[in-house]
């Protein structure tokens, strides 16, 4: 799924791309991902900013740029474009991938759960009314 519907990974950290060394994650199950997404609902919503930013429009967006949300300086300066691959890295260990992010959680260590969650994030990416 990711291979067919997502653009090539663009992840620039310190001016260097990291895509060459990491494969694109395999397809996930969006229905299962919706259940995993319950873990995110303490801070996030598909369609409105909360403690964390909304998730519609996430895929393809540069980190720290959703209008109306106050990001950490670290997120603003991370220079990451959110894709299946960059999300996979971030969701595994947010504080390691972007030190200083407000998302102070350990991350999702199960690779399949991450794949499923990312599949769901792709579904809600095109939420109607998302500006």
């Amino acid at each position: 799924m990711f291979r067919t519907c997502l653009p090539a990974v663009v992840c620039l950290l310190g001016g260097m791309t990291v895509q060459a060394s990491t494969p694109v994650p395999a397809a996930g199950d969006a229905a299962r991902g919706k259940a995993v997404y319950a873990q995110c609902l303490g801070c996030h919503s598909p369609d409105r900013h909360r403690t964390g930013p909304k998730h519609c429009g996430l895929i393809g967006r540069k980190s720290g740029t959703a209008s109306g949300y106050e990001y950490s300086k670290a997120m603003q300066q991370a220079n990451v474009v959110w894709s299946a691959q960059t999300l996979d890295h971030f969701l595994f260990a947010p504080l390691s991938f972007i030190p200083g992010t407000k998302m102070g959680v350990a991350g999702i260590k199960n690779a399949k759960s991450r794949r499923d969650l990312i599949a769901y994030l792709i579904v809600i990416n095109e939420q109607p009314g998302c500006d």
Partner: peptide, 17 residues
């Protein structure tokens, strides 16, 4: 209930870090 469930996850995620 959705907010409380999310809060449980948020704290569970924060505890290790």
């Amino acid at each position: 209930a959705g907010l409380e469930r999310g809060a449980v996850s948020a704290y569970a995620g924060a505890i290790p870090v």
